[in-house]
Simulated assay, not measured.
Amino acid sequence: MHGHGYGPPQPTRPSTAVLVTVRVLCVGLALLTFGLLAWGTMLRIAIMRRRRLDWVLFWISLALAIAAFVIIGEFAEDETTAVDFVFLPLLLGLAIGVPIHYLVADIRHYQKPRPAAWSPAPSPYTAPTVPYGMPPQAPQTPPGYGYPPVPPQPQPTAHPPQPRIDQVRAELDELSDYLRRDRGEQDR
């Protein structure tokens, strides 16, 4: 009746076809736009993994894409400028680096096993549970942990205590003897 209840729902892994399709679209988004829309791929990683580093990388890629778009558009009339030597390689780095980072992060995200919300698995170092009324036994070290197994210690043999029924019977016998003696004295 009482207990921990249900754990939070575990996210399920999408089918392989969906994963491949999303990966192709995100990689194509970065490559085909020559890095200008690579921030969309980084946004997918940041939403999927929810890590601070991924959000920082998303904002950096967005700022770099906007800066490159503005500066290249501003200086497009010049034939060769120093800006072309800085921002074109930057866009090329976004176009190649972001898909590689995305594929590595996405594959690792869906490969690692998810921890269960609640796991009743016992630890090898805890004592096993015993039914009510059973004497507890000392836990034994599991084999293979570098310690020799501890043999169970012999319990001292004690005489079992006199059952309660025998004690009650003896007390009733004493009481009836006492009452017979008491009645015998009263009859005289």
Rank of each mutant, 00 (worst) to 15 (best):
Y178M: 09
L37C: 11
G5Q: 13
P89L: 04
R51Y: 01
Q186A: 10
Q186R: 08
R44D: 11
Q162D: 11
L64C: 06
L19T: 01
P89C: 02
A170K: 10
L37E: 00
P128H: 07
D173C: 09
I47R: 15
G3L: 09
R180V: 12
L91G: 02
L175N: 13
V20F: 03
V83F: 15
L62V: 04
P148Q: 05
L31T: 07
I96S: 02
Q167I: 11
A138G: 02
Y6E: 13
V20W: 05
Y125Q: 03
G184Q: 10
F34A: 15
W59C: 15
T81R: 11
Y132P: 05
L175R: 08
L53A: 12
P136L: 07
R181C: 01
G3A: 11
Q167T: 09
V27D: 00
I107D: 05
P160K: 11
R13L: 04
P163E: 14
T16M: 10
A158G: 10
V70K: 01
P122I: 06
S176W: 09
T129E: 10
V83A: 14
S61N: 07
R164M: 10
P139C: 03
M42C: 09
R51K: 14
Y110H: 14
S61E: 03
T81H: 06
R108G: 15
P154G: 04
H2N: 15
Y6V: 15
R181S: 12
A121C: 04
T81M: 02
M1V: 14
H4N: 15
G73P: 03
Q167M: 13
P8N: 10
R183Q: 13
A17C: 04
I71T: 15
E174D: 14
L31N: 00
I71C: 04
T129A: 09
T12A: 10
P89K: 03
R108F: 07
P122T: 08
L32N: 01
R114Q: 15
G3I: 12
D187N: 08
G146A: 04
A117Q: 05
M42T: 12
E77M: 06
W118C: 05
R23I: 05
P142A: 04
A76N: 10
P149M: 05
L31S: 02
I47K: 11
L179E: 15
P139Y: 03
P128L: 11
Q153F: 12
S119K: 08
A30F: 00
Y125A: 13
A65H: 04
F69V: 14
V86H: 02
D78I: 07
H101V: 02
A138E: 14
Q186M: 13
T21G: 11
G133R: 04
C26D: 02
R188C: 02
C26T: 00
V27W: 02
L53F: 06
L32R: 00
T21S: 12
W118D: 11
P9R: 13
D84C: 01
D166M: 14
R50L: 12
V18P: 00
A95L: 06
A65M: 07
F34M: 08
V130G: 01
P161A: 15
L90R: 01
T12I: 09
H101Q: 06
P163L: 10
P163T: 09
Y6K: 14
F87M: 08
P135W: 01
Y125C: 00
A17G: 09
